[in-house]
């Protein structure tokens, strides 16, 4: 299962998208999701889809890979799509039963919802696949900076995010190891009724929590020994820099927005 999860992983590469500044990618990603809701007819959706596929092509990573990333979420998407179809009324009605009805509007709406979901997943996968977790943290810290005015502990939040990101693979590995050790002691996962399956989780969670506590203690000690003091001003080692391609990316987004607004029928 963990192996199959594509979303949230980083794939090293040398493409244009890889070289974009992490801040650009993050802001552009959110912006894209924002303007996605401007789309309301097939021309606008076609434009957005085209744009997304162009971005994917630019990353140099195979399409199949992105489609795999959608697979784990397919049931959630289909569920939403079916709900949309059943509860949207209007247009020609093909079939109806009580409060449910399949209408032409419903069908179109369902397709739109489907496209919207897939595009959001694709674009966020593009971001995580082409940006190292470290750069991503730096970008988040940068974007959060204005909130300092509101007494938000931005530095601490950035630190927590970077520590959390750093330890995700370590904890995954640990989980895998503990699961294997318990399987070797006769635990079978995914067998029996719900209660039995819940009980099997205990021999994994307790060791995992215990090792997390130990790890946290060690890490805090090591940080203190290296002179870390939370509230003090620090300098930064990694510095993000905007390049000309970030400007181009911004311009492309502006063009996309203009295109969308023009094609939109209100």
């Amino acid at each position: 299962m963990i192996d199959k999860l594509i979303f949230g992983r980083f794939m090293p590469g040398e493409s244009l998208i890889h070289h974009l500044d992490a801040r650009t990618k993050l802001i552009a990603g959110f912006y894209f999701i924002g303007i996605l809701f401007l789309a309301n007819n097939w021309q606008t959706y076609a434009l957005l889809t085209l744009f997304t596929f162009a971005v994917i092509a630019l990353t140099g990573i195979s399409y199949r890979f992105f489609i795999k990333g959608v697979k784990p979420l397919i049931w959630l998407i289909l569920f939403t799509v079916v709900l949309q179809m059943l509860f949207t009324s209007g247009g020609t009605i093909f079939f109806s039963w009580g409060p449910f009805a399949i209408s032409s509007f419903g069908l179109i709406n369902g397709v739109y919802v489907f496209i919207r979901f897939v595009l959001i997943i694709f674009i966020s996968t593009v971001i995580t696949l082409t940006t190292t977790p470290m750069d991503l943290t730096d970008a988040i810290a940068y974007i959060l900076r204005p909130f300092k005015v509101l007494k938000m502990p931005v530095q601490d939040i950035a630190l927590m995010i970077s520590v959390a990101l750093r330890f995700i693979p370590t904890l995954m590995e640990e989980t895998d190891k503990i699961m294997k050790a318990q399987r070797a002691r006769g635990v079978e996962f995914g067998e029996g009724n719900l209660f039995e399956q819940m009980k099997v989780v205990v021999p994994i969670f307790i060791p995992l929590f215990v090792s997390s506590f130990n790890r946290a203690e060690d890490l805090a000690d090591a940080m203190e020994a290296r002179g870390y003091q939370g509230d003090q001003k620090r300098t930064r080692f990694r510095i993000l820099r905007w390049h000309w391609c970030d400007l181009v990316a911004g311009l492309v987004l502006v063009a996309l927005t203009v295109g969308l607004v023009t094609l939109r029928i209100s």
Partner: peptide
């Protein structure tokens, strides 16, 4: 495969991590 696992015991690296 449980029968196999019963007959083959594995002591993993740092096995203390499996105590719960």
């Amino acid at each position: 495969l449980r029968d196999i696992r019963k007959r083959v015991g594995i002591v993993f690296q740092f096995p203390e991590a499996q105590l719960f």
